[in-house]
């Protein structure tokens, strides 16, 4: 997968763009999408992004129907329904956005791993962060789970939260 800078640079949230791999920051993220018994089920659009006071929010993943063709605007038409993310970050990204884009995912627990300075994941400078996971489902609801954490640059930190209807358990560990 190619990585294309989409208006946001690696420096927007983090520090130096390059870190030796042995010393790299790693973010392990677990996102549960609940199985819902509804008459019409579509997999949710999910956006995951990082916020820090005073800097541009940084999208690290967005799952949507990027390969959809036709009248629905090739999948981008409904991105605005992930409305908190759309306002914070999505609307300033040019789509298709390499490095952050993924297909929608089925119900279940999804493990994600990001490495600081690679792909969509910036190296995080010390500070107070919020990692937000937001899901919006066609003909369904919308929900965001916010995980707050403080990163001192070296001590591993974990946070977890839980959605009530569109998201299940969400947890993360950041370490180096």
């Amino acid at each position: 997968m190619q990585f294309r800078i989409t208006g946001l640079t690696a420096a927007a949230l983090g520090g130096a763009a390059f870190t030796p791999a042995a010393n790299a920051q790693t973010l392990d993220l677990s996102v549960a999408i609940p199985k819902l018994t509804v008459a019409e089920y579509h997999r949710p659009y999910v956006a995951i992004w990082l916020e820090k006071e005073g800097v541009t929010p940084r999208t690290i993943a967005v799952w949507y129907d990027f390969d959809l063709k036709g009248s629905e605007g090739e999948g981008t038409k409904w991105l605005r329904d992930v409305r908190q993310w759309w306002r914070a970050s999505g609307r300033s990204i040019a789509f298709p956005a390499d490095g952050i884009t993924g297909a929608t995912r089925a119900p279940g627990t999804h493990k994600l791993n990001f490495t600081g300075g690679r792909g969509s994941m910036p190296n995080l400078t010390p500070g107070a962060y919020r990692l937000i996971v937001e899901a919006a489902r066609e003909a369904g609801g919308r929900e965001a789970v916010t995980l707050s954490f403080n990163w001192d640059g070296k001590t591993a930190v974990s946070a977890s939260g839980k959605g009530a209807h569109e998201l299940g358990a969400v947890s993360m560990t950041l370490k180096r």
Binding site: G73, E74, T76, K77, W78, L79, R80, W86, G90, F95
Partner: peptide, 10 residues
């Protein structure tokens, strides 16, 4: 019908 729109051709 919408005031906030995503995509490039709507």
């Amino acid at each position: 019908s919408s005031t906030i729109v995503s995509g490039t051709d709507n």
